[in-house]
Amino acid sequence: VADFADGRLYAALAFLAVVPSLGAYFFFDRLVGAAGPARASLTVYLIPLFATLAAWPLLKEPPHLYHAAGFAVILAGVAVASMRRR
């Protein structure tokens, strides 16, 4: 149960609201500059993959076979979408 009188809770929430958001925009902006907007937009499809991988150590949710299948489908889709047309 959270102690809403504890200032550390609000400091942690502020940190989690600001730092990852700014970091994500910074790195996405760098990716757009390096790879172009069309290729950089494909990273949106990787969010479920990263969320699942983050849940493993943080929430103690072990990955299962269906995660691997989902990862394969996501990565295959990103690979096909990023292929250059001839």
Rank of each mutant, 00 (worst) to 15 (best):
V1G: 14
V1F: 13
A2D: 02
A2S: 08
D3G: 07
D3A: 14
F4V: 15
F4D: 05
A5F: 14
A5S: 14
D6F: 06
D6P: 03
G7A: 12
R8M: 15
R8F: 03
R8V: 06
L9Q: 03
L9D: 00
L9F: 04
Y10D: 09
Y10G: 04
A12F: 11
L13W: 15
A14T: 10
A14P: 02
A17D: 13
A17M: 03
V18N: 04
V18F: 14
P20T: 07
P20W: 06
P20E: 07
P20N: 12
S21D: 08
L22F: 10
L22C: 06
L22A: 12
L22W: 12
G23K: 01
G23M: 10
A24K: 14
A24M: 12
Y25H: 10
Y25Q: 07
Y25M: 15
F26L: 12
F28K: 09
F28D: 14
R30L: 05
L31G: 00
L31S: 11
V32E: 15
A34D: 03
A34F: 00
A34L: 03
A34K: 15
A35N: 11
G36I: 03
P37S: 13
A38H: 10
A38E: 14
A38R: 13
R39C: 00
R39E: 12
R39I: 08
A40N: 04
A40R: 03
S41R: 13
L42C: 05
V44T: 08
V44I: 13
Y45E: 03
Y45H: 05
Y45W: 05
Y45D: 08
L46D: 10
I47N: 12
L49W: 09
F50Q: 07
F50L: 07
F50Y: 12
A51F: 10
T52R: 11
L53W: 01
A54I: 06
A54C: 11
A54Q: 05
A55G: 14
A55Y: 00
A55K: 08
A55H: 01
W56I: 08
W56C: 00
P57V: 07
P57L: 05
L58T: 07
K60T: 02
E61Y: 06
E61K: 14
E61D: 05
P62K: 09
P63K: 05
H64C: 02
H64D: 03
L65D: 09
Y66I: 15
Y66H: 08
H67Y: 09
H67P: 00
H67A: 06
G70A: 12
F71V: 09
A72E: 00
A72Y: 06
A72D: 00
V73G: 11
V73A: 15
I74R: 02
A76V: 09
G77T: 02
A79Y: 06
V80G: 04
V80D: 01
V80I: 12
V80K: 01
A81Y: 00
A81M: 05
S82P: 01
S82I: 02
M83N: 07
R84K: 15
R85M: 09
R85D: 10
R86C: 00
R86G: 10
